[in-house]
Amino acid sequence: MTTAISSSVAIRVAGLHKSFGRTHALDGLDLDVEAGEVHGFLGPNGAGKSTTIRVLLGLLRADGGTARVLGKDPWRDAVALHRRVAYVPGDVTLWRNLSGGEVVDLYGRLRGGLDGARRDELLERFELDPTKKGRTYSKGNRQKVALAAAFASDVDLLILDEPTSGLDPLMDEVFRSCVAEERDRGRTILLSSHVLSEVEALCDRVSIIRQGRTVESGSLGQLRHLTRTSIIAELASPPNGLAQLPGVHGLTSQAAEDGQGVRVALQADTDRLDAVLRALSASGVRSLTSTPPTLEELFLRHYQDETGAGRAAGAGDRGEEASAR
């Protein structure tokens, strides 16, 4: 049983807690990453993404909850585990007097060896000059040093913490193709990111966290299901009972421009779309525009909840600490 789980689950985190003094960085966080998938890890700044990653790397010790990475305890089995894990931090700092090539080799060797041909190929694809010293690299180039070292290592799990911050669009493209190649090789990737187009293009599943807690998790299709479709329609007569229909939000209506009929705008929960359309067509649809849900809207809804109703309703006990942080 245990072996079956550990072979199909790369990361399993349940009820993780971590406090720094009086600040609760993680407050019962859950995260499940299947083996072989690219998993998006999202949340507003300060939500606890990097803290979670540091716990997964055994750099921080969790106060409560469980965390298993590749079937191992990240705190106790750190070294054995790290042989199979490559990590790219969001803000790469290099030693000033070591060249980029030296750092790539060093990280590879510290993980137990790296593929020399793959290393050279990656340096070329990322257009990285390996002879420059640490201090002279720009932010994007420092990021590329860490990415090349991670992709050239022979590991099962890549943990990438906002890895593309500072990369130009061309290098972004290189990064995406590298991630796709890694997935094709059967490797698992945990990708923390703020770039939604990147998440949409790369990730099989995503988890959204807020204030140290997981608020949403699933495949992109499942999440889309939870979003709302925007509808603008011109109707022959004012709609009856539309406002009372479950799943209808932000309904406005006004006289149509030509003076005949009514123009309504609303947002409908995607799983209630059918009933909403029925109600609309009962009033005689003359024109209809529907805008499909975007991930942006989903994320913005979750992100904004932090300052809106979500905090007032659910986070009264932690609101002060969170804002202090």
Partner: peptide, 10 residues
């Protein structure tokens, strides 16, 4: 922040 990536290796 230079210790962290090293300690994230084996």
């Amino acid at each position: 922040d230079r210790a962290e990536p090293v300690l994230a290796c084996a």
